[in-house]
């Protein structure tokens, strides 16, 4: 780890001020991603601004019936929060599908959104990587790319975003609250993460000196018909190869509302309005599901080692839609796939 200056932020405004004063500074919350990256010399901040003591730990009801989650609420507290378990079980399930007990106890809501890719070359400073060092090239294209993306890729980068929580938040139409030098704003989850394009060094649309203060869930939580299905190399404590978040509103056998979001396949949690439109107003039927799966994967492209992800994603979508429609969500402790 490089030597760095350490300071504690006194409040959100102070955190923003300290960040704006030093372009190589990084906020540290749970540290579970940043400290790891610093040990590999991928991140070499000259200053760490410790935001972990800021009062952003509340989970509060919003006036319109939603929930506002402070950026420092630990992943485990959020997953087990009674309101979340009861009203947003998809979110609870996705969080519990990620990492381990120890990591979830430290990991924060904001840090989880802003964790960086697990692309092997991003972690290996001896290799070329446009995300780590813009302009050096992408080693994953033509390299070991089994875990890399199949959707929304560019010639510059085929990395995926590794967060499980973000996939559920995207499916649930959450919004991110951020504060920067020019004040506070909200960013819809669907626009929070970005595609790599020719600027893969940027994971999100958050400004350099902006701090995430909260994530807000709308009132509708899809508590009856949902699932988070995560497919990985071992049954726990492993990142998703493909994950599927589904949330449905079903009335008398007809799908009234549908959300379908994929993880592990793109630089951001992947949603497709056309795929969701293909479900709405339709009966619960295998051909309905197959059509939606076909639409959301229509532009999928493999890079060799990850070709299998296209078929895996299609099958996982079918399975997840059935789980959600039947009201039998995937258990995150009994690993048998229902």
């Amino acid at each position: 780890m490089n030597n760095f200056q350490y300071s504690r932020a006194q409040d959100v405004a102070d955190a923003v001020r300290q960040s704006a004063a030093d372009s190589s500074a990084r906020f540290i919350a749970g540290g579970t991603n940043l400290v790891d990256l610093m040990k590999y010399d991928v991140e070499r901040p000259a200053r760490l601004i410790d935001i972990s003591h800021l009062p952003l730990r509340a989970v509060e009801e919003t006036p319109d019936g939603g929930l506002r989650i402070g950026a420092l609420v630990p992943n485990s507290d959020l997953a087990w929060h009674p309101r979340v378990k009861d009203r947003y079980p998809l979110l609870s399930s996705a969080i519990l599908a990620g990492a381990s007990t120890q990591l979830r106890n430290m990991a924060s809501t904001g840090g989880n959104l802003l964790q960086r890719t697990r692309c092997l070359y991003f972690y290996d400073v001896a290799t070329s990587c446009n995300k780590r060092k813009p302009g050096t090239g992408c080693s994953a294209i033509g390299g070991i790319n089994r875990i890399n993306a199949i959707l929304g890729t560019s010639d510059a980068c085929i990395a995926t975003h590794p967060s499980d929580m973000s996939v559920a938040l995207t499916a649930l139409d959450a919004t991110v609250h951020a504060t920067g030098p020019h004040g506070a704003r909200t960013i819809p989850m669907t626009d929070f993460h970005r595609l790599p394009g020719d600027m893969p060094e940027r994971d999100t649309n958050l400004g350099a000196d902006e701090i995430v203060t909260a994530v807000e869930l709308p009132a509708h939580g899809f508590r009856s018909n949902y699932t988070y299905l995560k497919i990985r190399d071992r049954l726990s404590y492993a990142f998703a190869l493909v994950s599927v978040a589904v949330a449905l509103e079903i009335d008398d056998g007809t799908i009234r509302q549908a959300r379908l979001a994929l993880g592990g396949v793109a630089h951001k949690p992947w949603r497709d309005p056309e795929a969701e439109a293909a479900l709405i107003g339709q009966p619960i039927a295998q051909d309905t599901f197959a059509r939606a799966a076909h639409i959301i994967l229509r532009d999928a492209k493999g890079y060799g080692h990850n070709d299998f992800k296209i078929d895996l994603a299609r099958r996982s979508i079918m399975r997840a839609l059935n789980q959600a429609a039947q009201g039998t969500p995937q258990s995150q402790s009994d690993k048998r796939i229902a």
Partner: peptide, 27 residues
Amino acid sequence: CDHGQCGACTVLLNGRPINACLTLAVM
């Protein structure tokens, strides 16, 4: 592992298990 991948470093922080390798003592 020193990278949060094995749990050998698990300690209890206010009674809750965490990985001591991924957190800074000053915090």
